[in-house]
Amino acid sequence: MTPRLVFDVAAGLAILFACVMVVHRHPVKSVLALVVSFFALAVTYVLLAAPLIAAVQVIVYAGAILVLFLFVLMLLNVPEEVRQTPDRPIHQALSAGAIVAFAAALLASLRAYGATRAAPSAELPPGDLAPVARLLFSDHFLSFEALSILLLAALVGSFVLARREESP
């Protein structure tokens, strides 16, 4: 069980369940497929020497954001998307074309540059949290504080948006 094998399996699972998410027409099942996909991504993060991010990924994404999605889906009781004749054929054709073109461009640029850029520098002990925390609260302290203000703004904003209007 080399790290590479584990990484490839986890990444494959993430891709597989991402496909399930896009293809499945039931929104609740889509959310669940994405949970599995994000969980597999967390495994790849551990292998890329970022256990803190892996934990944050599971706690924030799988544990909070996607639960919120499920919560809203249940609250609104969103029905399954019905398969219907495409009412905007041009839109869909253009979308499909754009996706294929983008994938081709991405693959081409990966082949050209992907694996050759940048050179490795000093070793870092994998999985140690203290250096990350030190960096976060020294060099990036201002961004961290700005982020807390952003979260506060989001909190107030979502409260205002979702509040039921008082009956006149």
């Binding site: 669940l32 803190l52 706690i59 909070a64 639960v67 249940m74 999985g127 949290l129």
Partner: peptide, 25 residues
């Protein structure tokens, strides 16, 4: 004995909500 012990705990406990929510739905 992992370096993110407590975070792991909170990550897994935050997943336990899925069992209940899915059962309900």
């Amino acid at each position: 004995d992992v370096s993110i012990g407590i975070l792991y705990l909170f990550a897994v406990t935050s997943l336990s909500v899925y069992g209940i929510v899915l059962a309900g739905w």
